[in-house]
Write a protein that binds this DNA or RNA. Sequence first.
DNA 1: ACACTATTAATTAACGTTCATTAACCTTCT
DNA 2: AGAAGGTTAATGAACGTTAATTAATAGTGT
Lengths: 169, 169
Amino acid sequence: MRNIAGAVDISTPALYNHFKDKQSLYIAVITDTFENKSELLLQALTGQDKPIIRLQNFITRLSEVLHDDPDFHRLMQRELLDGDEKRLRYLAQEVFGNSFQHLMNLLIELKPDCDAHSLSVIIIGMVQKPYELNPLDRFFPGSQPTHNTPAHITKQVMAVVTAYLENRP
Amino acid sequence: MRNIAGAVDISTPALYNHFKDKQSLYIAVITDTFENKSELLLQALTGQDKPIIRLQNFITRLSEVLHDDPDFHRLMQRELLDGDEKRLRYLAQEVFGNSFQHLMNLLIELKPDCDAHSLSVIIIGMVQKPYELNPLDRFFPGSQPTHNTPAHITKQVMAVVTAYLENRP
DNA sequence: ACACTATTAATTAACGTTCATTAACCTTCT
DNA sequence: AGAAGGTTAATGAACGTTAATTAATAGTGT
């Protein structure tokens, strides 16, 4: 609370005129941050384009969001680690549930016999992990900063995913 | 420190007979935990089997490790979020660097023209994300506990990866 | 137009906890 | 004798929060 107050140049108790306590300030931050982002993702998934293009738009958008706003990513990871049940349920149902459902529908359109749920999780993992691993990756052999741009990630992920979607067993 | 002391049934100051301070206790925990796991992964990658089988062994092993020891996963995520540069360098170079290098070599064997670094990160993402998303996923539509077993994850990830590896453009 | 009042939002000072850590001392083996 | 490992009590810092007070702003009756 002292740090936040300092960052906006007011005294610590003045914060309490705007937020009841630390918990409700935190929830306000979470709500504001996540609702903006989920709106962006939903747009990409529900456009007028062909399914494969919508998938690509989603991957690009998710990648951009993670790239442009590292705080969003950190906040998400922190919630996944330590969020209590109530907040996680809110995030799952009210914030990201809709996008996740649309992603699954999209994948079923593209490959009717696929396990849409598992595949959705896997795709999110492919996109997000480069950013997550970044602090470690900097010290890995073969690491290049260009590997963490949305364009590069989209290209790589799409290559893998389309190979799977077009694969007729 | 109080909690840890309580968990091993000694008073808090008694901890200081065994660890200089909280920081060095934490580092001891990290070192112990991660060195065990990286050894397991390295074994899977460097066996006598055919490359594709070694890849599958790696995916299975990583999945098992994450599944059987949730504390390992949490510790890893926490380090990625908040670890200072020194600790991250140690983890990258001394603990996981070797495995990462072997994973890249393996992928180049399987698909010489691939971007081994990006693909390695992507594969790790596919395996790890189901566990990472688990707290949220429980509230998603279509979520099933069986989706988080090592066997299921290995199957799904291998299906996607082999489709990409076998894909001849 | 103007005094009166209520609300909002800021300030300084302080309180009560919790936390990691240390000091001083005791017990028990070798 | 002394090293190892335990205890209780105390210390100082950091943290979230409240109390008491004050300055500024908006609304209202005259």
